[in-house]
Design a protein around this nucleic acid. Sequence first.
DNA 1: AACTTATATGTGAACGTTCACATGATTATT
DNA 2: AATAATCATGTGAACGTTCACATATAAGTT
Lengths: 335, 335
Amino acid sequence: MKPKITHATLHDVAELAGVSHQTVSRVINDSPRVSENTRQRVLEAIQQLNYQPNHTARALATRRSLTLEIVTFGVGYYGPAQIMGGVERAAKARGYRLFFSNLDRLTYADMRETVEDLKRQQVEGVVLIAPVRSAIYEELMKERNNIPVVQLATQKDVTFPSIIIDQQLGSRLATQHLIDTGHSSIAAISGPLHWNDAAARHEGWLDTLQDNHLNPVNWTEGDWSAASGYRAAHELVDHGAKFTALVIANDQMALGAILALRERGLRIPEDVSIVGFDDIPEASFFDPPLTTIRQDFSTLGEQSVEYLVEIIADPQAAAGQRVLTPRLILRKSHR
Amino acid sequence: MKPKITHATLHDVAELAGVSHQTVSRVINDSPRVSENTRQRVLEAIQQLNYQPNHTARALATRRSLTLEIVTFGVGYYGPAQIMGGVERAAKARGYRLFFSNLDRLTYADMRETVEDLKRQQVEGVVLIAPVRSAIYEELMKERNNIPVVQLATQKDVTFPSIIIDQQLGSRLATQHLIDTGHSSIAAISGPLHWNDAAARHEGWLDTLQDNHLNPVNWTEGDWSAASGYRAAHELVDHGAKFTALVIANDQMALGAILALRERGLRIPEDVSIVGFDDIPEASFFDPPLTTIRQDFSTLGEQSVEYLVEIIADPQAAAGQRVLTPRLILRKSHR
DNA sequence: AACTTATATGTGAACGTTCACATGATTATT
DNA sequence: AATAATCATGTGAACGTTCACATATAAGTT
């Protein structure tokens, strides 16, 4: 009843072509040690049987899976989704397949599970999007059975293989630009501060104010969502602090904040200037078009695979953190 | 020099515990055929050696990989990213791992590559996000070597296993609501019409107008981006056609359109009502908050895995299309 | 012409599991 | 008390490759 389609194997091909299985193996691996004559014969047999090498068997024999894994925290967010695109592209380009694993919650159980999986799956390397401060990641690093891991969006100056975008710099760019254009009362809406990027952006804002002998007027913490930006902006106004500019840790929150400020009768950029972070594709079409700090997430993803592949080839290559630079994109939400 | 960490195997555990490899196998597979006594001894050995079953070897022996694959078209888009989240969650819950493959371009070469991969990878099933009309997909279906495939976002009433959200219905909901609230000049900005969802939404708009004996005023085609929505809205106004309402095929384009209309001195919703599609999280914080047709992409992803698993268990279960229903979310961009 | 070297191919084990079956010990059945 | 049934365990092959080596033939060297 159950047909159980069985695929042609190396031996089937060998038999049909009248050679040994090893010769077939040589053909599919492009070994020069095979005469043109037999090569053709084998190729024909392969064609005829619609033979496809079995990846599993190959992995078992070679002890190489040609597989990477990406473990993400929150596919829902813009950044991680973009990073994944880059990782996939780079992995495919280098002949690797990609496992995809998502962590919705950063609980011990979830993480535990993921580590156990890693050990089982015969994965050659892992790109870990680890944007949140958590001891769990360190545990992961210890228990991972020497599987190379490149972490993304970690803290700055961490010593294990990782790549970050210099958020502190980005935030300095934003804040300094506002100061340079005459602002001295600059408030902020931060991301959730247990996120590394949020903390770095926040520090950049604080440090820049300090460097310019300005006092931080006021700030609130959001959760990256437009909803939280909306709430935060209302709060800021309620609090009575006067500010003429607002540094907001991502574009979505900026969107929410713009709506809230407008509800309070504040015009942008006449009454308050705004700069966001990320440069999501929609940012140009906010009202007004948003000045923001662009993050090249896609490149981040690609580079992480490159780094990983270097480490796989030579574990000695595993050295420290690489840093990408964000860029200020000027539009119309500031003056 | 190269330590080449070798993991403990079944045989190592067996030796340490003083039993046969098969007994160890029984323990790790929870077979009842093993005495409590030896089970404990084996468990200890496993612990001691930090043994982890080798997934590859198991797959080879059982001819089951416990692996699914998702092939996506454009991770960058909101929908696909959400779907992926759902697919990952459901796959993990059912003990499957997930390969992730992205198609940036729908070229023959890219697709060909993907199909070849499928045949090689020993994947048990595939969730294919196939939002674009293309003969390539049909070819895929033929050549896939009997691997179960569930397609997402295909055309309506297609006979192979697939799940769609009823976009035509969604569009009817939107258009009819505008008509019911007094509009009779309803223009549209469609998505790229070779996308199935775009075409269905467009048809829904047209059909509803027809059912109500109204003429379609005017419409243009966008490419899902806010930028294209912006351009399209300007075009519509340039074209001189009078409209009091606008059905826009996704929220991002709606954002762009809102900005464009405002630039033309048109107030929303006083002068023109707008309804979008998708209900991205930011839609509530557009100015004005956007009335839109909500799509439950996450559920779509989960259900696709469920369907797929049914088919894997029983190929007879592969029967036709399942349909999810979108929902009208009323906010303030219409009157 | 004899000896080395290179080329084309084959043989059997190995990778780390599970599967199908065999065996011996214990317990139940008549 | 003999026989059957059940339970706990073991044995060797199989999954589909590659690896390490062996062999036979052809070609090059002295």
